[in-house]
C-alpha cells in the first residue's frame, strides 16, 4: 500500500469534480487529499489527488480516471522525478514563555507568521509531506489549536509539460 500522487488534467466544467470524486467513492478507493484549480488554459483544471493502494489498485484507479470523458490526461507522478508541495496554516498557542521558541521553529522551516494575537500565532508553511509532518511534530508539544492544509499540488520536473491538444474536430458524418 503505497501513497501515490496523481495529477489529472480535466475539462474545467461543472460536475467534473463530482464525477472524479464519485468514481473514487463508488469503487471504494480512498482520497487522502485533493486539490483543484484552473491551469494556464482556462478551459482546463488540474487536480492533484493523493491516494493509497497496491499496484493493481493504482492501475485500476488510473484506468478509471482515464475512462471518464471529461478527464484529459492522467499522470501518476509517483516514481517519476517531480515536485510536490502543500501549504498549511497552523494556529498555535502562543503563551508568553513559548513565543520565542515558536518563532525560532517557524524560521527554521521558513514559515511565515501571518496572524498574531496575545495568545496565538497563525503560521503559514509550504513544503513537501516530510517537511510539514516534521514541522507539526515540533509544534505539537507547544499546543496546536487548529490546522488547515491545502492538499498537495504537484508537477513533473524538467522542460516537458503535461501537453494537451485542443478539442479535435472531425468531419461531420
Amino acid at each position: 500500500m503505497r501513497k501515490h500522487t496523481i495529477s489529472v488534467l480535466v475539462e474545467n466544467q461543472f460536475g467534473v469534480l463530482a464525477k472524479v470524486a464519485g468514481m473514487f467513492s463508488a469503487r471504494g478507493y480512498n482520497i487522502e487529499s485533493l486539490s483543484v484549480a484552473e491551469t494556464l488554459d482556462p478551459t482546463i483544471s488540474r487536480m492533484t489527488i493523493v491516494t493509497r493502494g497496491d499496484d493493481p489498485i493504482i492501475e485500476q484507479i488510473t484506468k478509471h480516471l482515464n475512462k471518464l470523458v471529461p478527464v484529459i490526461k492522467v499522470s501518476d507522478l509517483t516514481g517519476t522525478p517531480h515536485i510536490d508541495r502543500e501549504m498549511a496554516l497552523i494556529k498555535v498557542e502562543a503563551k508568553e514563555k513559548n513565543r520565542a521558541e515558536i518563532l525560532r521553529i517557524a524560521e527554521i522551516f521558513r514559515g511565515k507568521i501571518v496572524d498574531v494575537s496575545p495568545t496565538s500565532f497563525v503560521i503559514e508553511v509550504t513544503g513537501d509531506d516530510e517537511k510539514i509532518t516534521a514541522f507539526l511534530a515540533l509544534l505539537k508539544p507547544l499546543g496546536i489549536k487548529e490546522i488547515g492544509r491545502s492538499g498537495k499540488v504537484a508537477m513533473g520536473r524538467g522542460p516537458k509539460t503535461a501537453g494537451v491538444e485542443p478539442n479535435g474536430e472531425k468531419e461531420g458524418g
Partner: peptide, 11 residues
Amino acid sequence: VFPRQVVPRGY
C-alpha cells in the same frame, strides 16, 4: 447550423 462532429479531447 448542424455542427461538425467534435470529439472530446480526453476521449
